[in-house]
Simulated assay, not measured.
Amino acid sequence: MQLTVLHNQNLFDIAIQENGNVLTVFELALLNGMSITDNIEPAQKIEVVKSPLVFPELVDYLAVKEQVVATGGIDTLEVRPTGIGFMIIQNDFIVG
């Protein structure tokens, strides 16, 4: 079965959404020729199969509540490195 990736989803999110078990992320990665840490794009199609490790109670709960697991991507991070090595003169580092 193919699944269309939604905005801010990663393989871990899909593993939980489809199988109710984060351990199935390894099966998803292997099935799709990916690493578990690869970035996936919204609207990308990936193959999904029901795992023997499925936790149906969680899958059913998410379906009944119409919840989508999307914990965020790297594009939502707004953390800027700090410290003297990252300072910009007259911006962060004021010379008086």
Rank of each mutant, 00 (worst) to 15 (best):
D92P: 04
V25S: 08
L31P: 06
A43V: 06
A63M: 00
V5Q: 04
G83N: 09
I14Q: 03
K65Q: 14
D60M: 03
P56T: 10
E57Y: 03
N32Y: 14
M1K: 14
N10H: 12
L62S: 05
N91H: 07
P42N: 10
I14T: 14
G33T: 15
P52F: 07
K50Q: 13
A70F: 05
A63P: 00
I89D: 13
A70G: 08
G73V: 02
K65M: 12
I89P: 02
N8H: 10
D13H: 09
M87L: 01
S35C: 13
D38I: 06
M87W: 06
L62F: 14
I16S: 04
V68M: 03
M34E: 13
T37S: 13
F93N: 07
F93S: 00
I14W: 11
I14M: 09
G83T: 14
F55L: 06
I36L: 07
F12M: 11
V22D: 12
V69A: 01
L3P: 04
L53S: 05
I89M: 05
I36A: 12
D75H: 12
K65Y: 06
A63V: 03
F93W: 07
L6N: 09
Q67E: 12
V5M: 05
L28G: 08
G85R: 00
Y61N: 07
G20M: 09
L58H: 00
L11Y: 06
P56N: 08
Q67H: 05
N32G: 13
T71K: 03
N19D: 12
V79E: 05
I94D: 01
I16E: 08
N10A: 04
Q90H: 12
H7K: 15
T24M: 01
Q2I: 14
T71V: 02
F86V: 10
F12S: 10
D38E: 15
F26V: 15
I16D: 06
E66T: 01
D75N: 09
P56K: 08
P52T: 10
F86P: 00
V49M: 03
I89H: 10
T24A: 04
M34I: 11
E27C: 09
L23E: 15
V64H: 01
A70N: 06
A43S: 08
V54H: 02
R80E: 15
E57V: 04
L11Q: 07
T24Y: 06
S51M: 02
L23H: 12
D75R: 10
V54K: 01
K65A: 14
F26Y: 15
I74F: 11
V95N: 00
V49R: 02
G72Q: 04
N32V: 15
L58A: 06
N19S: 10
V54N: 04
N10T: 11
G33N: 15
P81F: 05
D38P: 05
G72K: 00
I46D: 00
K45N: 13
Q17R: 08
K50R: 10
L11V: 08
T71I: 01
P56V: 07
I40L: 09
T24P: 09
L23T: 15
V49C: 01
G96N: 12
I88D: 11
V59S: 01
G72W: 07
D13G: 03
G73Y: 06
L77R: 03
L53W: 02
Q17N: 10
I84R: 04
L11W: 11
F55Y: 14
